[in-house]
Nucleic acid binder design. Structure first.
Lengths: 243, 243
DNA sequence: CCAATAGTGTCTGTTAGACAATATACA
DNA sequence: TGTATATTGTCTAACAGACACTATTGG
């Protein structure tokens, strides 16, 4: 980087805006949800009143790095401090923001819906969960290029759920295997075989028993916690290892 | 994004630098190579004389978007216009560049080594291919955080090679199946079974016959081209489709 | 006919998906 | 004992890895 043609060290050329946006996913009522915020209508900023991903400019004084910035946004909106957080990608162009050349760094977070208190502003309706479904994804109503970013995030999530333990981050601990299976099914949008699912989960060896959990009725299920919340598990893949 | 606290529309706060860096990979002499450029020693810029990834500041006037910027860097260094290009991720922090808060958008490109003419500057040795091996990856000699970016890129490449047709972009067309297999083996760093490899490639149905190719001796192999250079093929994965 | 590489066939252990059976609670 | 959910077991078709074999060229 930084092979500048001029011998000057001033670096006084136009700089794009740098922002961070966060896709915050959870599961509520057997549906995948994403957090959106409504943009202000009275400040002269772009896309007044439109729904957008939570995010904003990198604060050079507050944010040590991009991920810290993403965590700050998440904390400000949900109060959640320790989510699963992954970088999704970046989107930058001259056209995406009417104020000028801008580049956003998108992250996506997976959190459990319990214990989340949405941070409302003056307007009580300016932060809300939206169900991730065709209407939301097809609708072009989101601010900026946030619809495209959301589509990319959902695609990435669905893709990774096929071979990782990511859905476990969408549930409060302890959770049961039937709950986890339902979460997989919700994200994937298709049923999963019970027996194979259990075999797979146990073979991955990432769950620790946490005692039987009480349920509404019938046989009480075993509760589980993640052995290591820090890193998700990857299930075996194609081109399997050989000598 | 852009939920600024002040009602001002001036956006006149400090902006980080925005750069793009490109990991340019190819295969030469049965070894994976990456292109590095040597930083100038006489302009007062950071890391003088150190090797670095090709890249630099986004030019708000020249670059319509981030990918266009990456393509420009690639073209300037190699003359290659149509590589496989994929976004790798972004790295941004207050500390990574001594000149101030900066964020770089990293891309990685796969190109065939034939027909590449390295763009040399005044110093003929300032652009060169480096073999991607333990010495290079372990050495902390690269400028900025480029060693970390390189490690991430190699990891991503190795990972995706397990289940995609990416290595095909490292070869000039037409290529033969033995050549392609050798390329897989070079990137993966382990042997691959011939029969299974062929079955897999043919089943993926992404190669078009391009006539028998002459070789040094022995039985001449069939040459192939990609049916669609635009999109790589993904081989089947875990959690295979069910009704 | 031999050597060298290209390409195909076969065998077998493993596994994922489908589905059946059992276990454990409450009413 | 009945019912609903949790959990485990079984059966089988498909497939991947290992390895052997055939094909085609040049010498």
């Amino acid at each position: 980087m930084a092979t500048r043609k001029t011998a000057s060290t001033k670096n006084d050329f136009p700089r794009p805006f740098t922002t961070v946006d966060v896709l915050i996913f959870t599961v509520i009522d057997d549906a995948l949800k994403v957090l959106l915020v409504q943009r202000p209508s009275d400040t002269g900023e772009p896309h007044p009143g439109a729904w957008a991903l939570p995010g904003g400019f990198v604060n050079v004084d507050l944010d040590a790095d991009l991920e810290a910035c993403a965590r700050r946004k998440l904390r400000e909106k949900t109060g959640v401090a320790s989510p699963y957080l992954e970088q999704l990608g970046s989107w930058g162009s001259a056209a995406r923001d009417p104020r000028g050349w801008s580049a956003t760094h998108a992250y996506f977070a997976l959190i459990a819906s319990d214990g989340v208190t949405l941070a409302k502003g003056a307007n009580a309706a300016d932060v809300a969960w939206f169900t991730v479904d065709q209407p939301l994804l097809a609708k072009k109503k989101l601010a900026f290029d946030h619809a495209a970013i959301l589509r990319a995030g959902v695609e990435r999530l669905r893709s990774k759920v096929e071979y990782t333990s990511l859905p476990a981050y969408l549930l409060p601990e302890p959770f049961t295997l039937p709950q986890l299976q339902r979460t997989y099914e919700v994200v994937l949008g298709r049923p999963v075989d019970k027996s194979g699912f259990r075999t797979r989960m146990m073979a991955a060896d990432f769950l620790a028993e946490a005692g039987v959990v009480e349920s509404d009725s019938n046989r009480p299920p075993m509760g589980y916690r993640l052995k290591d919340r820090g890193t998700p598990v990857f299930f075996p893949r194609t081109f399997s290892p050989r000598g």
